[in-house]
Write a protein that binds this DNA or RNA. Structure first.
Length: 1009
RNA sequence: GCCGAGGUGGUGGAAUGGUAGACACGCAAGACUUAAAAUCUUGUGCCAGCAAUGGCGUGAGGGUUCGAGUCCCUCUCUCGGCACCA
């Protein structure tokens, strides 16, 4: 057999696969679908290690799923609009389109060297008019719904790029692309009203629980008090209703009681114990909203008990609508006692079957789960958490929630003394209003002019001018608070106190109403008040005497909730009570209104650049802003000569294009010259991937509802607040206008890591630490690069490239290659070709128990680990098995079945090499798609082989390992103890009788002395 | 300041509350070689010991447990994000 030389072999297979159309996907195929999505790349013209990490490693999963019988769709397109193309065009005097398409061609060629199953036929290129046409279509739909509007807002402005930047594109006060310091400038912008979707974009995933006790049970009996506490310490809301007549229960009454007295929402988990499980099922059946899950502990669906009949049996008709119950829950678990004295395991099993629920049989602390603690119940209750349909990482959910920043509060109206003006102040802490001693307005507010007294005008104007000039950066850097008094006083609507009104730049014009009241329970307010000698009145105390003394003395600022003092009629109330009372009183007096404030702002999509989607509106002098009629879409970008912005957007120079007739009145009109933010392009591309060439509609709705949501979305953690939030917004909008039936587009989101340069710094040309994948491929082959990236560590790892590390997997591949020689039933010929000479069936039975154990353990491990994005341990498992096979081959041969299985398991990782070996080992004379190793089915692992006959039991003395004994699987404590006590080592420790002996079957024996 | 993720050998990293360090890199010794590379074999957490073996060991300190890298509390450091959000 020849040496393993990846270079020529890989090229050869890439060509043959392509010719044979091995990876052509048919989206109308009825096989189970698997839509694999990676964030679409920007066509920079250079495929770097990061692309390999995301696309080549994800290809491993795609190939596995394909072998497992899924119809895998793995499209790749290009995010082709955006500044770099335009900057390149300006710099080199070329057309951004030529630059972009040239780069795409280069990158496609580079992509081919990965040997992946990526589908470029479906991958859209976002600068293609047939794609951005539908950006324009969506924009017009949003315009119709009032979600797109024109607003003048203070925006982040990059003076170098001459464009507006979204908050997400400002990094530490600088433009994310060019690093120029961003300034604040008021600009006319097209905005998308993402704030209308703020509530729906929140991840409401905090579960709450309703626990139903059983016959003769009580909320304070059995495990209920313990379980309630355990859940509450974890921060969950728990309801444990006392069901009517527990000792002579009428199930119908109990069901009615629960429905009337408990709250249910989509995050509720309902638990029922024994008869409570029956009640729980009937409650679920009657619910109008879907709940998160049902946990049934020792349930039954017929009145048949092992011990004796129960009085409730005849009060209930024992009919369930299981279909209805199933449709009202996302998932269900039934937990049974393996030797319950009342409810037979068969009954529990039956309940599980009719509900399609997971069945867990355990040994509870006390028979029929009546112990004070039943940890298994808690465990199952919490395990339901992870079975949510939409599986996005917790940090993303929390990050997006924080960014949306919902805060519920009130807007309070302060009358200005001797004036008709009113100052509106947003607060979430109306309980501290009584103690308000000043008001602060953001300097930019127009209101400032109206209330400033004449003697203060000079100072106020001077401060305002200074504040406006300050860039965002300076404002943030300068933590020292500044401000000036306006001379005006406002009247506290709660107690009539007159308090001074100041302006200060720590009040942000963009947040809330741009004004706040200051009191003794906010660090910033206290800092400001102390600096300017403004009085403070502490009104909230904790109950801790020492601490309260400090708070009253203003030595400590208490910002939490507590009890009110010095607050008139509210004194003595808790903060929560006081909040409620103050809001009620003020709303009644029309001095306040309840208000929900969001940190999230509307999305400004206007860009004063050329290389983007033209915004499809026409400005008519008579009719105003008129959308371009659908039939006239797309509005195609015109060719222009000069792409550099010169105080006005480059498109303004395309006069022939700009000057149009108004679609309404046919009068002279001008086109909008701004283009769209490229985040619009990437907000819905994954839907168009399914049907990219459709000229009649945005996509075929049926096809998309069959293929989306995607199974897995791989992307960068940096897109948590930008891209993924925007795309969730777009999909929800498309859902609302009836284009798609779902409102989340990705079932699972996983972040990829970042490969740093060997020096630990981010790879960049200026650092000179770039590891070029092409060079690595040249040296070690694509298979080794793929596998090394998979092997590095967890997939979201941020770690440097280790130049010698790749040798490890290269070595692995080489050993797989050379093992071919050692396969029984093959003969090497002089030319380096092998021939199969033995019927493979005849050898199968020659596999020893250990051989089968290793084989099946590896089949299981690799399949499971790759599916759950743990490529590194999957590779490790393959290496372990290879080590086993090598040891075996050292003095003898390995069997054909083993080698063939090994090739199948390695195939997703190293597609080229395994294909070569597969073809050789089958002596195929010419390649045919059906013969490909990649068309073979994934081996099926069989449980029977991975059950070991003998196991090693660890023997411990006081928890320290002292001895190992080998016993038959399933050996009981008596047998193991006997063996352990026979050991000399153990005898040395075991002088007297142990106090206690712990036995974990199949695992360990622990003598406590 | 707030939110999130973490801290395990020389390195990347494994470990459903049950033998910590799988797998790999690196390193060391040996084999092959005139030599080197490649390859193969063996060893490799730290301390003591020729060894058998013993002690210590998952950022620090406490706790729960027969048993803790894993669960709980306090602290500390690193990374990521947000940041004067009323």
């Amino acid at each position: 057999m020849s040496k393993y030389i990846p270079k020529s072999l890989e090229k050869n297979w890439q060509k043959k696969w392509h010719e044979a159309g091995l990876y052509k996907v048919d989206l109308t195929d009825s096989k189970k679908k698997y839509y694999l999505l990676v964030e679409l790349p920007y066509p920079s013209g250079d495929l770097h290690m990061g692309h390999w990490f995301t696309f080549a490693v994800t290809d491993i999963l795609g190939r596995l799923k394909r072998m497992q019988g899924y119809n895998v769709f793995f499209p790749v397109g290009f995010d082709a609009f955006g500044l770099p193309a335009e900057n390149a065009a300006i710099k080199r005097g070329i057309n951004p389109r030529d630059w972009t398409y040239g780069n795409i061609e280069t990158m496609k060629k580079q992509f081919a060297t990965m040997g992946g199953m990526h589908d470029f036929e479906h991958g859209v290129i976002t600068c293609d008019p047939e794609y951005y046409r539908w950006n324009q279509w969506i924009f017009i739909k949003m315009l119709e719904k009032g979600l797109a509007y024109r607003g003048k807002i203070l925006s982040n402005w990059c003076p170098k790029d001459q464009t507006v930047l979204a908050n997400e594109n400002v990094e530490a006060g600088r433009c994310w692309r060019c690093g120029t310091e961003v300034v604040q400038k008021e600009v006319d912008q097209w905005m998308l009203k993402i704030t209308d979707y703020a509530d729906r974009l929140l991840w409401e995933d905090k579960q709450n629980f309703v626990l139903l006790h059983g016959f003769t049970g009580r909320p304070d009996k059995n495990f209920f008090p313990w379980l309630k506490e355990a859940l509450e310490t974890k921060g969950y809301r728990v309801q444990v209703p006392a069901l009517p007549d527990p000792d002579d229960a009428d199930p119908m009454e109990q069901i009615k009681y629960v429905l009337e007295n408990c709250d249910f929402d989509q995050n509720t988990v309902l638990l029922g114990h024994s008869l409570g499980a029956v009640v729980a099922m009937k409650v679920t059946e009657a619910l109008k909203t879907k709940i998160a899950g049902l946990v049934l502990v020792a349930p039954f669906i017929e009145p048949k008990f092992r011990d004796h009949p129960r009085p409730f049996e005849k009060k209930f008709n024992w009919e369930f609508d299981f279909k209805k119950i199933k449709s009202n829950i996302s998932s269900a678990i039934t937990v049974g006692d393996i030797d319950d004295s009342a409810v037979a395991p068969a009954h529990v099993k039956k309940a599980a079957e009719v509900l399609g629920a997971e069945l867990v049989m355990v040994k509870p602390n006390i028979d029929h789960f009546t112990g004070h603690q039943e940890p298994e119940v808690l465990k199952q209750l919490l395990s339901l958490n992870k079975t949510s349909q939409i599986d996005w990482p917790q940090p993303v959910r929390e990050g997006q929630n924080n960014w949306i920043g919902k805060s519920e509060g009130v807007i309070i109206k302060f009358k200005v003394k001797d004036s008709s003006e009113v100052i509106e102040v947003f607060t979430t802490r109306p309980d501290t209003l009584w103690g308000a001693t000043f008001i602060v307005l953001a300097p930019e507010l127009d209101l400032v002019f109206k209330i400033t007294t004449s003697d203060k005008t000079k100072e106020v104007t001077a401060y305002q001018e200074k504040a406006v000039k300050k860039s965002e950066m300076e404002r943030k850097e300068n933590k020292e608070k500044t401000g000036v008094f306006t001379g005006a006083y406002a009247i506290n609507p709660l107690n009539g106190n007159e308090i001074p009104v100041w302006i200060a730049d720590y009040a942000l014009a963009q947040y809330g109403t741009g004004s706040l009241f200051g009191d003794a329970h906010d660090d910033r307010d206290v800092e400001f008040a102390k600096k300017y000698g403004i009085a403070l009145t502490p009104t909230v105390i904790t109950g801790d005497v020492e601490r309260d003394a400090r708070i009253k003395n203003k030595e400590e600022v208490f910002t939490g909730y507590g009890t009110l003092i010095e607050s008139g009629k509210y004194t003595g109330m808790s903060s929560v009570e006081a909040k409620r009372a103050v809001i009620a009183d003020l709303v009644h007096a029309k001095s306040a209104e309840v208000f929900v404030n969001y940190h999230l702002h509307d999305w400004s999509i206007s860009r004063q650049r050329y290389w983007g989607t033209p915004i499809p509106v026409i400005h008519c002098q008579k009719c105003g802003t008129v959308p371009v009629p659908e039939k006239d879409l797309p509005v195609v970008l015109p060719e222009i000569k000069d792409y550099s912005p010169q105080g006005k957007p480059p498109l303004a120079a395309a006069e022939e294009w700009v000057n149009v007739k108004c679609p309404n009145c046919a009068g002279d009109a001008k086109r909008e010259v701004d283009t769209m933010d490229t985040f619009v392009d990437s907000a819905w591309y994954f839907l168009r991937y399914v049907d990219p060439k459709n000229e009649r509609e945005i996509f075929n709705k049926q096809l998309v509802s069959r293929w989306a949501p995607v199974e897995l979305y791989i992307g960068g953690a940096e897109h948590t607040l930008g891209h993924t939030l925007y795309s969730r917004f777009f999909v929800k909008f498309l859902h609302d206008i009836g284009v798609v039936p779902f409102d989340e587009y990705a079932k699972k989101r996983v972040h990829h890591g970042v490969i740093l340069g060997p020096d630990g710094a981010r790879m960049s040309k200026s650092h000179g630490n770039v590891v070029n994948p092409d060079e690595q491929v040249d040296q070690f082959g694509a298979d080794a690069v793929r596998m090394y990236l998979a092997f590095l560590g967890p997939y979201d790892l941020v770690a440097p490239w280790n130049p010698t590390g790749i040798r490890g997997v290269y070595h692995f591949l080489q050993r797989v290659w050379e093992l071919n020689e050692k396969v029984d039933g093959y003969q090497s010929t002089v030319e380096g070709k092998s021939k199969k000479t033995v019927n493979r069936k005849s050898i199968t039975h020659n596999l020893s128990a250990a051989d089968l154990f290793w084989m099946h353990k590896t089949i299981k491990k690799v399949g499971e680990d790759v599916s759950s994005i743990k490529y590194n341990t999957a590779v490790a498992a393959l290496m372990e098995w290879l080590n086993y096979l090598s040891r075996k081959a050292h003095g003898g041969k390995i069997l054909h079945d083993e080698y063939e299985t090994l090739l199948l398991l390695v195939a997703p990782f190293a597609p080229h090499m395994t294909e070569e070996l597969w073809q050789k080992s089958h002596s195929f004379t010419h390649f045919d798609a059906e013969n490909s190793v990649h068309k073979q089915a994934w081996p099926v692992f069989q449980e029977q082989y991975i059950k070991e006959e003998k196991v090693i039991i660890v023997v411990q003395i006081n928890g320290k390992v002292r001895e190992n004994v080998e016993v038959e699987t399933g050996a009981d404590q008596v047998a193991v103890e006997k063996l352990a006590r026979a050991s000399e080592k153990i005898q040395n420790y075991l002088t007297g009788e142990p106090k206690k002996v712990i036995f974990v079957p199949g695992k360990l024996l622990n003598f406590v002395i």
